[in-house]
Design a protein around this nucleic acid. Structure first.
Lengths: 346, 346
DNA sequence: GCCCACGCCGTAAACGTTTACAGCAGAGCC
DNA sequence: GGCTCTGCTGTAAACGTTTACGGCGTGGGC
């Protein structure tokens, strides 16, 4: 592999100083003849600039880190998919961190900003602890958080609005004539679990429907857990005519159970999911669900960070992304698809 | 944000030389008293080692690049998911490149190895051109290719075996008593398309079944295209009793069309997919499919690369990952699930 | 013909580490 | 007490760039 040519090698071969070589390579004003010689030497030697040395001197790495809990999670993937091209277009490389949902790992990532191997960080933490806040306050590079942070935290952040999301879904079910709308939620001690639970209750109240504890079932955000939860719920409250599921996987579990019990979807029970899984479109019946705009959040976060890197040092910004309801067969029935396609809907 | 403490700051505060600081930080033998002073100073200042300067001197970045065509593609995602923890455990960071299926971008990535911002590269190219081969031969860092390369190419590579994969699927369908087994393929000028088409023909021949051109339909590797292709196929050859689909998305499209036409799956038509999408398990009926071991390939690639980085400079290695058939409802019927779960199968 | 201005270029310092080498103090030996 | 040996430590160079600064040569104005 050899030991690659450096600016010095080129200088010798071209018979000029390393300063001239550097100037030529950076397009600074130089005599035509010198440019020619340097370029020729560089070409012949197959020179490529050493990014590390350049970073050391210029204090810019042209790298940005994205830290998320789990590469496998479709919501993060949707973010990644949007972040990548934005950064690439701006000339930045993407360094990926998977924290495996371990808080200590997230703290590690924040700490490692001090190593200065990246110019900035986009992070989507599970939950925000005091240590997070402390480290954010003293971070050695700009950070954008995807998720909610306590009011007053001095950090740019991009958040979803699951409250409005739940509201959209419940209103939709109500409009379809459903009145026994149950909620299948994840753990209440998680940020999304708590928010979605509260929003559900609020939405019912605003619609003038009673809040019935029997219609609320807590499980976890996985398909198998969803099955268990929905089975219990149906045993306890067989009269439900709609399920508001706190995420897509729970909703898939719900479909499994309903099918096994011979309940038709949506005729007997309508089902709504939530999140940004592409599983929702693959299932049968395809799943109506509230998208929380992971893709948009990723994009917004990347753009916020780029602004900071271009020198913006104003007050922290907050962006909230609106949720969207995608109506599919699990509430609208199998015919929805034909209409959708006629209308050119996505 | 301040301008972070350096080894010099620490040296001053601790009243020692920078060499001593460096030695302490690297755990080289040092007098106890000095260690104490340096550690104290480092703690008080909140010192973190500058990774860039360290890399410049040590010629190691502790970063590895992974280049793939598209972040959204589940097969690459499966690789990524396995690569990440392997690298992390070995103390490497992951730099992600998405080449958008553009050959020039892949070449760019290979070229940029010269910048020395990573210690090695894992790449999963669409197709391997002469330029690829040329650049690989002169690459300035170890590279592992996920995919096939021409015999004799001096590069480590990890490949799938879609030929055997198709064989597994066709044999399975045959064993179920199916004799009119059709193939829905992607474009024949892609590497996978060609290989899978040939393998299908070969498998039929070996089973003593005739190869009937009417039973082969070419589309593209997308769901919508799959729908179109299967609709055409069914119109032309209504008697088919099994569909071998060249990927999962095509298979999902097939399910859509069969359902719309009132053909039962698997009673009337059995369907097999191929690839590593997690959509296959979400669909209804859940999809029997051949996994090409993307996850295993990713893991193997990461491990090969790590070996190289530990100084192995032996001959290029080739790893072939065996495909696996996952039998689900689209061939085994809705009861498969109960048995699966009883058996504790994945 | 002299001087000044200007355009290019080379020298050298700096970025923050690691590490070869030399120096120095103390211990042990005679 | 002088010598050597050992164990730490400091000085300085190096990694490959970028860039401030000063010098030199040329051209133009008087």
């Amino acid at each position: 592999m050899g030991d690659g040519p450096t600016i010095t090698t080129i200088a010798e071969r071209a018979g000029v100083s390393i300063a001239s070589v550097s100037r030529v390579l950076n397009g600074l004003p130089t005599r035509q003849e010198t440019v020619r010689k340097v370029m020729a030497a560089a070409d012949e030697l197959g020179y490529v600039r050493n990014a590390v040395a350049r970073s050391l001197k210029s204090r810019r790495t042209h790298q940005i880190a994205f830290a998320m809990a789990d590469v496998g999670n479709p919501a993060y993937l949707a973010m990644l998919r949007e972040i990548q091209p934005v950064l690439k277009a701006a000339g930045y490389r993407l360094v990926l961190h998977s924290t495996d949902a371990v808080v200590a790992d997230e703290i590690d990532v924040l700490h490692s900003l001090g190593e200065r191997y990246v110019d900035g960080l986009i992070m989507s933490p599970l939950r925000v602890t005091d240590t997070h806040l402390q480290m954010l306050a003293t971070a050695r590079a700009p950070v954008v958080i995807i998720g909610s942070v306590p009011d007053g935290t001095r950090v740019d952040n991009v958040r979803a609005d699951s409250r409005t999301g739940v509201r959209l879904a419940v209103d939709h079910l109500y409009a379809l004539g459903r009145r026994r709308i149950a909620m299948v939620n994840g753990p209440l001690d998680t940020v999304p679990g708590a928010a979605r639970g509260a929003a559900y209750r609020e939405a019912l109240t605003d619609l003038g429907l009673p809040y019935d504890e029997n219609l609320v079932q807590i499980g976890d955000f996985y398909r198998e857990e969803g099955r268990r939860a929905v089975a219990e719920l149906l045993a306890r409250a067989p009269e439900v005519d709609a399920l508001m599921c706190a995420n897509d996987l729970i909703a898939l579990g719900a479909l499994d159970v309903l099918r096994a019990k011979g309940r038709r979807v949506p005729e007997d029970v309508a089902v709504v999911g939530m999140d940004d899984t592409d599983l929702a479109a693959a299932s049968w019946p395809s799943l109506t669900r509230v998208s929380l705009g992971s893709a948009e959040r990723g994009k917004a976060a990347a753009e916020l960070l780029l602004e900071r890197l271009q020198g913006d040092d104003g007050d922290p910004k907050r962006v909230t992304v609106a949720p969207r309801l995608a109506i599919r067969a699990s509430t609208a029935g199998p015919d929805y698809e034909r209409t959708q396609r006629k209308e050119g809907g996505a």
